[in-house]
Design a protein around this nucleic acid. Sequence first.
DNA 1: TGTACATCAGTGAACGCGCGTTCACTGATGTAC
DNA 2: TGTACATCAGTGAACGCGCGTTCACTGATGTAC
Lengths: 222, 222
Amino acid sequence: MSWSGHQGHAGRRGYHHGNLREALVEAALALIAEKGPAGFTIAEAARLAGVSPAAPYRHFRDAEALLAEVAQRGFELLESALAAAWHDGRPEPVAAFEALGRAYLGFARSEPAHYAAMFETRLAADAWPPLAAAADRAFGVLRGAAERLAEVLPKEQRPPALMIALHVWALSHGIATLFCRPDRGRRPLPMPPEELLEAGVLLYLQSLGLAGGTPRGHKSPP
Amino acid sequence: MSWSGHQGHAGRRGYHHGNLREALVEAALALIAEKGPAGFTIAEAARLAGVSPAAPYRHFRDAEALLAEVAQRGFELLESALAAAWHDGRPEPVAAFEALGRAYLGFARSEPAHYAAMFETRLAADAWPPLAAAADRAFGVLRGAAERLAEVLPKEQRPPALMIALHVWALSHGIATLFCRPDRGRRPLPMPPEELLEAGVLLYLQSLGLAGGTPRGHKSPP
DNA sequence: TGTACATCAGTGAACGCGCGTTCACTGATGTAC
DNA sequence: TGTACATCAGTGAACGCGCGTTCACTGATGTAC
């Protein structure tokens, strides 16, 4: 949790904050990380940023707009993380696809507040077009990767790439929400969630005829 | 949404409600269904049940206790639904397992308020032991089914049944939360979620050597 | 069968609280000339 | 370079609101005798 650009409550010089918009986003993330999305209030975010409760309204229409901004940034970060991991399928599509899965889970684990803002806030997609667009772009990385993967298969037995993408997304999201949430409601796992996801994706790809070896069980390749 | 036993605001006879505990649970479900778990308040639940705001405290320690009760009942309902679908693996384990998956999704779809109380409230498992126990029992059905399934395989290449159960749970939960939530944040799907899940589970079981045919693509058996 | 009484589910008024949002304002910034 | 002025980010006080929870109470129920 970095407080980039913000000098802190006491250290703020003068009347103007300088970078309040950023500070508010950071404050929202801190609050969500601490108490979940339901525990976030715009008043407390202002307090955290060292500013009067009216100040946020210079930057955000209302509390929901701030949440939507956080969620949108989350999807943008996720998109970058996924794209970097996929790396256009290099050096090898199946391995790159596995890396993409790991990156998804890594994002959920390292950015739980972003992740919660993205998936637990029930923001209406149609009310925040830029948010919906960012979400689509993030999913687009996964979808593009699935398309590239599917191209390897002979056309007759090629399943819809979209379906592959949806399966992998759902499995990753399921593992992320069930086993990676940093609260006390999380269920314990007998193995690291990354390993669980990797084994699941590997088995799944195998049945499509995409993964080479037969790493039965939950052993992951070194 | 049935108001079993409750005669309604006006129809209530006399001073005592008769079945306030039930009525409060129903009211909570209605509120959660309408506005999500964050929109639930104990005051409004009392109002819905036609009772003063102090009355709920005769039955629940606080608002969280009421939520925990709703979540616990949800897990109990889920357990029944899963057990009924699995039906002890009869007449045939793989088909019964498929039915179990459909039942999970069916529950998430037909009981969205219960489902939200179970998975979106961040109740601390250690603070509500009966809730945690109910959740374990529900998962136990899935786990037991996976064990029975795994027994078919030769011992050397048998993956841990627990892993199978976790994979299927995560996939089902992922599909349920991403594509079945009845709010405006849900993303649209090009196919029914049941079909998506069924295809995913089928492919997965195939790679384990459990599913017979090779229904490539997303065609589901008749 | 009748009555006294213990039990307890619900009342209604009250409390303190923190929130979201608004308003007229004021202090800082930077630009035109 | 200096000054007037427009812009706008932040102030602080105020509002109405609904919530969670408590309290002493009261009305209904059912049981002991």
